[in-house]
Amino acid sequence: MSNGSDDRRAQAEPSTGGLSRSAMTNTPKIRMRGVRKAFGPKRVLDGVDLDVAAGQGMVILGGSGSGKSVTIKCILGLIEPEEGVIEIDGVDVLTLPRREREALGDRIGMLFQNGALFDSLPVWENVCFKLLAQNRITRAGARDRAVEVLAQVGLAETVGDLSPAELSGGMQKRVALARAIAARPDIIFFDEPTTGLDPIMGAVIDGLIVDCVTRLGATAVSITHDMASARRIGETAAMIHKGRIVWTGPAGNLGHSGNAMVDQFANGQREGPIQMELRR
C-alpha cells in the first residue's frame, strides 16, 4: 500500500530511468522455489527458482513458450503449480486457505498484455473496478478516483466516459495501467506492457510504469521481449529458458552479461545456445 513515506522516498530519489527504490528487506517480496507445471505432456515450468526483493523492479525475459506468463500466473493464483513453493512476504500462498489467498490478491495489481479491459463497462468503471467490487468506495467516489488515476497516466477526464472499444491501443494500455494501480497495490505485474505499440508509445508507457510504480513504492514484475523496455523498467532481470531460470542479474547488463543465452536473446542473434523450435 502506498503511504506518505513511500511518496516522499520516491520524490527524494533521482530518476535513473529504472524502478530505483531502496526499500529492501532480507525477506524477498516474492520467492519461488522448485515450481513445476505441465500441460498434458508439455512441461512448461521445470523447477523455477526466483527471488524478487521488496520495492524492486524485476524483468523476466524469455522466448515464446519459455514459461514467462505461466510463472506470473502461478504467482497470481490463476494457475495451480504441481510442485514447489511460492511465497509472498514469507507466506506460502499455495497452502493458504482460499479466503486468505483472495485477500492477498487485494494487494496485487496486474496489467495484461492486451489490456483485458471490460468492454461492457465505461473506462472509469474499469479503472475503479476493484474498489467498487469490494465496496471500498461509493460510485461517486469511484468516479473521482478514476479521474485522479487517469490523470496520473496522462488521460483526460473525458476519457472516463468512453467505452474501451473507442480507445486506441496506447490509450487502452494507459487505462489498463490505471486499473492496475487504482487500488494502490504493493505488487504489480506487467505482461508485455509494450507489445503492439510503436516505439514512442512504448517508451511513454514504460515511463508511466516507472512513475506509477515509484509513486506507489511497489514491487514490479514485468515480462517482456522488448529489450529497450526491459532496460527502462527493470532494475534486475531474470532469463527463463525451458521452464527454468537460467540467469539473474542487473538489467543494465543485458547484452553483455557473460551468459551466452542471455546475450544471444538480448542481442537478437540467430546463432547461439538457444535454438528456436520451429515445429513441436
Binding site: L76, D106, A116
Partner: peptide, 25 residues
Amino acid sequence: AEIGTMRVTDQIDALTTLSTNPMKY
C-alpha cells in the same frame, strides 16, 4: 459468445486479479 470472448481476451483472469470471483460475477 460474451463469456467466451472474455475468456480468450483474458478478461476472466482479469476479474480474478481484481478480487472478483468470475463465477459469482
